[in-house]
Nucleic acid binder design. Structure first.
Lengths: 348, 348
DNA sequence: CTGAAAGCGCTTACAG
DNA sequence: CTGAAAGCGCTTACAG
């Protein structure tokens, strides 16, 4: 195995052109300060850099700037397994850092405890910032507040931007609920059942539910309150349980808007077990457009969550935050992916 | 937001104890060279470091050692979506780096092209090593050979350690096939159908198939060659197609060993559509123990792939490789997770 | 036995 | 208009 060639450094370029390497640094960094170099020198430097395939050493700059070169990513139980939410989010974050040519090290924490245990001892001196993603428990808010108060740059990826000082990026969940419901109403459903999933006591706090209501308003239809099932979580079992309850109460319904693909598939399982055909008798829509949609007994129509895009923005935002800027919060627009579970004619 | 406190540096400790910071560096690094400091000084330094909560700056050491602080991770289409293979592998890699207190930056590449496009220009001067994971296409081997020849440390995560000079870590796929088959034979199956998935012309090259054969040998049963289906991929459709073909040929079978959870679930879908009950008439086992197992119409028995553990070892190995060592290749032992698809009495 | 000094590759306030 | 110099936090060959 041959020895690896050394990468080009600022000094190599400076030497080749017989200028100081400070000048080269300024030109390459686009940060001239007082310096007003002659255009021909600037161009010569840029040309030489390209010729010698110069790549700035990622560690050196960060060290000089006082960076640690690390961003922690704390991912709470996020969506159900199999939805690849965490994976897509990380992919987006990683791509975002790459775009900035930033070399930020992702450290994954799977639990608050794991994170907090190390926070005072290590993490807070060990990283430049944190991205906190996941289900918005009250405990999560406390954690974010504490991090923010400690002076560590934080970006959150949570439903509902509840801490105004902390920049947040999320899929637009209200629009998810709207798109799913609008799709069923537009295709003729009259009585749509809905699974509301929220940790709060009041279902009204669910943004997807608000989207569900908004779509009904637009179509001039009033939803039946009895068809709103308070789901304890996003799992398959919630979907099964919802269908059991609606049927036990003798309710009629021709559509189901779930709040996760798991819930939707659980509902489909239960419907099929009862001999109720999907989509012929009941049309079903999930949320996440996860790989599970195709594993479902009937391919599942779903609304995307755009986690890769969310991750990209989270990376941009934490970078800006670390640079001392104040990035604004964002909502990412979802779209509908129609499959057989919601279409009366089989898809081609 | 209060200004962040500065982290303790070597100099802070040296100043507090009135020793040189070179000495502190040597003590903290456990790298004394010629230096033979008095034990009391060493202990005083260690105590002070703990007291002042010293955390070595991750960038400084790497810069000094000539590291780039980055490891590329090239993940080929790996398993089907929804299995979270990539996610688990990354989680393991990340945890492995953390354990070494290494700050290595993961850069994900989703395709060879994406990777190669940047390789000569950037990547090879830009990172300390690469982990290549995925399906072992001939093209992948070429890529790994090229990387290795270029002098860049490489660790592969591929089925079959085909390049002896390159350290490889993988789940023990032969043992996966063995465990799945042994489980069905031990519980009374006599005629087990199998999906062989291999890019090679000869099914014998499939290690899972060899495990399948080994289990039969152990139980003194000869498998029926007609029940071996050559699957083109690991998707649901392969499982459906296999069942259709076996039934069309009028073959009898009481068990199916698939080579992925998707294949197994596809087979279950097709069996149920034909009114063949699972597990009563046919018992089914998948591979990966992915979240899909619980989304299956009948909860799926599966063999684990231990991707997190594989990732941890991949991190250890690339680190050793970068440090100039020659780590040995590894196979990680799987285990069986029994669910309803393979048990005649329903699980409690 | 211990420390001063050079240097990893970069940035930037400052002097000329 | 340009460059010499100090310094980010560390490591290590070398001098005392």
């Amino acid at each position: 195995m041959p020895p690896r060639e050394r990468a080009t450094s600022l000094k190599d370029i400076a030497q080749a052109l017989d200028v100081s390497y400070s000048l080269v640094s300024k030109v390459m960094g686009g940060n001239m300060g007082n310096t007003r170099a002659r255009p021909e020198v600037v161009q010569a430097i840029q040309a030489k850099a390209r010729e010698m395939n110069y790549q700035p050493h990622p560690l050196a700059g960060a060290l000089k700037r006082g960076r640690k070169g690390a961003v922690g990513v704390l991912i709470h139980a996020m969506g159900e397994e199999g939805t690849e939410i965490a994976s897509n989010l990380l992919r987006g974050i990683s791509a975002g850092f790459d775009e900035h040519r930033l070399r930020l090290w992702l450290r994954f924490f799977e639990s608050d405890d794991e994170f907090l245990e190390h926070f005072d001892k290590r993490a807070r001196y060990d990283m430049d910032g944190v991205i906190v993603a996941g289900i918005a428990h009250p405990a999560t808010f406390e954690l974010i507040k504490k991090l923010h108060a400690s002076g560590l740059p934080v970006v959150s990826v949570l439903e509902g931007s509840v801490i105004p000082e902390v920049a947040n990026v999320m899929p637009d969940v209200q629009h998810q609920g709207y798109l799913a419901t609008d799709h069923l109403l537009a295709s003729g459903c009259k009585r749509i059942a809905h699974l509301v999933t929220t940790s709060a006591a009041d279902p009204e706090t669910s943004r997807r539910y608000r989207g569900f209501l908004a779509a009904h308003t637009r179509h001039g239809i009033s939803p039946d309150p009895d068809l709103i099932f308070r789901a304890p979580n996003y799992k398959l079992s919630s979907g099964e349980e919802a269908v059991r309850q609606w049927l036990a109460q003798g309710l009629q319904f021709d559509g189901i808007v779930a709040q996760s693909d798991h819930q939707a598939i659980g509902a489909i399982h239960e419907l099929l077990r009862r001999g109720i055909r999907v989509p012929d008798a009941v049309r079903v829509v999930g949320v996440d457009d996860s790989p599970l949609c195709l594993a479902s007994p009937v391919p599942l129509t779903s609304v995307t969550a755009e986690w890769v895009t969310v991750g990209r923005h989270a990376a941009d935002m934490i970078t800006a935050e670390i640079d001392g800027e104040r990035p604004a919060s964002l909502m990412i627009a979802p779209h509908l992916v129609v499959r057989r579970s919601s279409t009366l004619q089989p898809q081609p």
